[in-house]
Amino acid sequence: MTSLTRIANRHLTIELSSLGAEMQSVTSADGRAWLWNGDARFWTGHAPILFPMVGKAPDNRVEIEGRTYEMAQHGFARRSEFTLAASSDTTCRYELSATEATRAVYPFEFLLAVEYGLDDARLTVSAEVENRDTRPMPFGFGYHPAFLWPLPGGEGEAHLVTLDNGAEPPLTQLEDGLVKDETSPSPFRQGTLVLEHELFQNDALIFAQGAGTRLTYAAENGPRLHFTFENLPNIALWQKVGAPFLCVEPWHGTAARHGGSRDLAKRPYSVILQPGEKSRFAFTVEFSG
């Protein structure tokens, strides 16, 4: 049965759902809401967890060890009921392990643990995937948080995404929801992207080769979110065109290649986790302004 958990400190209050271990709201002490509210007119998500794959598979089918399985976009974790394993005033931990339903589409024993923690005006979200099976386990993992655009207090201001490394990473585009091998010139100029709704006419902006480990999403003269990423080498930006949110999505893995294999292990940036091993993925976001 789905339940809600709240963690808070003097700066931030976070509400979370056991369904998908997904954030439902982020509110600062001054009452400002920062996270997308899931309005069904645009997109019902808030901040889904993507596992055991990121993006789409050809015809929604993946191949694992020579067998074919049905798997919807972004995997099953976001539609799964997690167990609240631990919580305190400022932290909580959700866990998802293999069930009869998951084995029917992903034939491995695993543990996915997702933790949320507050430290002043910083939120850290971390995940640990453990292979509890006896054979190597392929998967992709990602985060999909949607923050308001415009940011609260930034109405009327231009909004920017700025890469700390000043890079101009090439753009990977989608065709039928699958990544194309060829890339396009970067929309960043000296590490800065001025956001316009028209940028998303052809779906997400994907930087499969990475965009560094730190970026800022901000109103030009107003509030800002500063992100730090750990073990998340791929970045995407997405919105439903015209909707008042921006998804800042750090991933380890992407959709399957257009015209490529259904094999989960052969998708770009897939993780192959050996029996008994664990892998951690995390991001921190600091709220200011």
Rank of each mutant, 00 (worst) to 15 (best):
F110P: 00
T162N: 07
T192M: 12
L163C: 08
N221W: 08
L16T: 08
S186W: 14
E81D: 13
S88F: 13
R267C: 03
T44W: 09
F141Q: 04
E182K: 14
C92H: 08
V285M: 01
L193K: 01
Y269P: 00
L35C: 07
A77G: 04
S25T: 12
E182D: 15
L35P: 01
Y143R: 01
A127N: 02
E130L: 09
R132M: 07
G142T: 07
P107H: 03
G66T: 00
P223W: 02
N37A: 12
A47I: 01
G253M: 13
T254L: 15
A218N: 10
S184L: 15
F245R: 08
L96H: 09
G38P: 03
R189S: 14
A218E: 14
K56F: 02
F287W: 11
G142N: 08
G117T: 06
R280G: 05
E196N: 05
S88D: 14
A29T: 07
P170T: 10
G259L: 06
E65L: 12
P107F: 00
F51K: 00
D120F: 12
F287R: 06
A204R: 00
E220I: 05
L195H: 04
Y116R: 05
H226S: 15
F207M: 04
L118G: 11
T254A: 13
R135A: 13
L232C: 06
K278C: 14
S28L: 03
E63H: 02
Q274P: 02
I14H: 09
K240P: 05
V125G: 01
L151W: 07
N234D: 15
M71E: 00
G140T: 10
S28D: 15
P244Y: 10
L148G: 02
A218L: 11
M71P: 01
T91P: 07
L160S: 05
S80H: 09
D176H: 15
S270I: 04
P145N: 07
W36D: 10
L112N: 05
S288H: 10
S279A: 14
P169Y: 09
S18A: 15
T83N: 13
A211G: 07
L35A: 05
S261G: 06
P58N: 02
N231C: 08
P244G: 11
F147D: 05
L35H: 01
D263G: 10
S270Q: 09
K56H: 11
E168T: 12
S17G: 11
G75N: 11
G191C: 00
L12G: 05
L96E: 06
Y217A: 09
G75W: 04
L273D: 01
T102F: 03
G154Q: 00
Y94G: 12
F188P: 01
S126I: 09
A204Q: 00
S288I: 06
F281K: 05
G212N: 08
N37K: 06
F110R: 06
L16I: 13
F188L: 08
R267L: 06
P52Q: 09
P152I: 09
